[in-house]
Design a protein around this nucleic acid. Structure first.
Lengths: 153, 153
DNA sequence: TATAGAATTGACGTAAACGTAAGGGTGCAC
DNA sequence: GTGCACCCTTACGTTTACGTCAATTCTATA
């Protein structure tokens, strides 16, 4: 059951072997495609976030895995923990309306948004304080004839 | 050599015992005064950031320690690592102009400022992405008659 | 067939700044 | 003389998301 040879994989992302549009890729290509390491993919699998097929011991990622990985990376980008991402994805039911999942996602998103805004406020604070300190230090450097007014004791 | 009894410490921060204006406080008062835990103060000492006197085994913090702690907390607030803070403080020389120290502080500050600005940009990005996602989820919740257009696979 | 390039599992290591528990000492108010 | 409040040191634990070996196996190609 040959699926995607390394060479072919590098040259051609689409492969019409096997069933129509199965588009299976191995871990190396997957990693390259999404800018993550092999370790990361295995780690996500270990944490139950991904579930690639196997050809013997070799992982084969499907379209579905790619969609999930995209979501994981989006979640990561907006600051969700992998645990949160998992919680949300675990609620997915291909046969339902997924109202619960969407509600949970929205709920978590609101909280995360609040966290992000708080963080931004903290960073703005920090930027201001730091700027002030820098101005002070520049002052001291420019008048460094009065040594006793230095930083720290 | 009694310095500050627990009761007296709670009632009176200034103590004129011993030499003039020595103002020694024990770890508990110090912690309360600056909103940190005992563990934190001991940790900072362990890392070489503080160097309180001792009365036997009991730590006694001087005016100097307070100044240093203030600097540590400021550094922490603006996002410096303790290692950075230490580096800067270690350059302090009470007999010199401290030009080197000030220059290092300025240099590190510039870099930290850049980091903070980058962080802010990342957070802004995250906020935008998250807001978009939330809008999409709200959409899907409002039209949840089309189950196939859900999140994750 | 030899070798290089993928892939596998397993498991310890890392960073930062403390938290927390264990076990013990000192002094003083009652 | 004891019970608190405070202090001490030592040392392992926490968190998150992987990094970094190590030892081995698979497989395609020259």
């Amino acid at each position: 059951m040959k699926l995607v040879s390394p060479g072919a994989a590098a040259a051609n992302t689409n492969d019409m072997s096997d069933k129509a549009g199965e588009d299976l890729v191995r871990i190396g290509e997957m990693a390259k495609k999404y800018g993550v390491t092999l370790r990361t993919l295995r780690f996500y699998e270990d944490k139950g976030l991904l579930n690639p097929q196997r050809d013997g011991s070799t992982r084969l990622y499907t379209r579905r895995d790619k969609a999930r990985l995209k979501l994981i990376l989006l979640g990561r980008k907006v600051g969700f923990s992998l645990r949160d991402v998992k919680q949300m994805m675990d609620l997915y039911d291909p046969t339902g309306s997924n109202t619960k999942q969407l509600r949970l996602a929205l709920d978590k998103s609101e909280k995360q948004l609040a966290r992000l805004q708080k963080q931004r406020a903290l960073i703005d604070d920090a930027i201001n304080e730091l700027s002030n300190s820098m101005a002070a230090v520049r002052q001291m450097l420019s008048e460094r004839a009065a040594p006793q007014a230095s930083v720290a004791g």
